[in-house]
C-alpha cells in the first residue's frame, strides 16, 4: 500500500476543490442568470475537457506549462523550479480539467433558485452579495455540493492527464491512480488490488455523504 501516493491524491483533490469552489460559484451563477449571445460558446468551452481524450488534453497542458511557454517561464522566474512535473503544476492541471465538473452542477444549482426569490431578496434590501450569501447559496447548495464531490472523486481517479503533466515522481506527482498502474506493471497484483479497494471505498463514502446531505437539506424545503 502506497500511503504517500494516497496522501498526495487526497491533497491534490482537496486543493482542487478549494480552488474550484469559488470558480464554480462565480461562473455557475453567471451562466445561470445571464443571457448573452456567446453563452452557448462559453458553455461549450467549459465542457471541452469532458470530450477531449485525456492524453491529448494532457499533452496540451504539458506544452502550455512547459519551460518554453509564457506560463512555464513566468512560474520558473517566480518560484525557481519548473511547473511541469511538480505538485503545483498538477494542481493547476487538475483545476483546468475539472472545470466542467465544478461549473455545470453549480450552474444547475443556481438555475434552481426561482428568479422571484432573488427579486424578493433585493426588495428586502439585500445587496447582491448578501442575497448570494443568505438566499442563493443555501438554495443552490445541492448543486454546489455535487460539484465539489464530482471534482474530488474525479481528481482521485484521473490518470492520463496526471501522467502527462506530472509524470510519476514519488511524493511529488505520483498519485494513487498512477501508483496502482505502477504496481500492475511490476506484477504486484495484491498491492494494486488493495489500493483499488481503498479508492473504491473513498469514492463510495463521498457519494454516500453527498446523497445523505442533500436529502437532509431538501427535506426542510419542500
Amino acid at each position: 500500500m502506497d500511503w504517500t501516493a494516497l496522501w498526495l491524491s487526497l491533497r491534490l483533490a482537496g486543493w482542487t476543490v478549494l480552488f474550484l469552489l469559488p470558480v464554480g460559484i462565480v461562473m455557475g451563477r453567471f451562466l445561470a442568470y445571464r443571457q448573452f449571445r456567446s453563452k452557448g460558446l462559453v458553455e461549450a468551452v467549459v465542457m471541452l475537457p469532458l470530450v477531449l481524450p485525456p492524453t491529448v488534453f494532457g499533452f496540451c497542458l504539458l506544452v502550455a506549462f512547459g519551460r518554453n511557454s509564457p506560463v512555464g517561464d513566468l512560474w520558473q522566474s517566480l518560484f525557481g523550479h519548473q511547473l511541469v512535473f511538480s505538485f503545483e503544476g498538477l494542481v493547476l492541471a487538475s483545476i483546468i480539467f475539472n472545470l466542467p465538473f465544478a461549473i455545470q452542477p453549480a450552474q444547475r444549482g443556481f438555475e434552481a433558485v426561482p428568479a422571484e426569490l432573488r427579486e424578493a431578496a433585493a426588495c428586502c434590501g439585500m445587496s447582491p452579495l448578501r442575497s448570494l450569501w443568505k438566499v442563493e447559496l443555501p438554495l443552490a447548495w445541492p448543486g454546489l455540493m455535487t460539484a465539489m464531490v464530482l471534482t474530488f472523486a474525479h481528481t482521485l481517479g484521473e490518470f492520463g492527464i496526471v501522467l502527462m503533466v506530472g509524470g510519476s515522481i514519488p511524493g511529488e506527482t505520483r498519485t494513487i491512480a498512477i501508483s496502482i498502474y505502477d504496481r500492475v506493471q511490476a506484477f504486484d497484483g495484491q498491492s494494486a488490488a488493495i489500493m483499488s479497494a481503498v479508492l473504491v471505498t473513498i469514492s463510495l463514502f463521498t457519494i454516500a455523504v453527498t446523497f445523505w446531505l442533500s436529502a437532509r437539506l431538501g427535506r426542510g424545503l419542500s
Binding site: 426561482p114 422571484e116 426569490l117 427579486e119 424578493a120 431578496a121 433585493a122 426588495c123 428586502c124 434590501g125 439585500m126 445587496s127 447582491p128 442575497s131 443568505k134 438566499v135 443555501p138 438554495l139 426542510g220 424545503l221
Partner: peptide, 18 residues
Amino acid sequence: PHRRRLGIVFQNYALFPH
C-alpha cells in the same frame, strides 16, 4: 431594487423556503 425602501408582497409570496 435593494436601495429603494419598499415593501412588496408577491403574487406567490416568494417566501424564502429555507
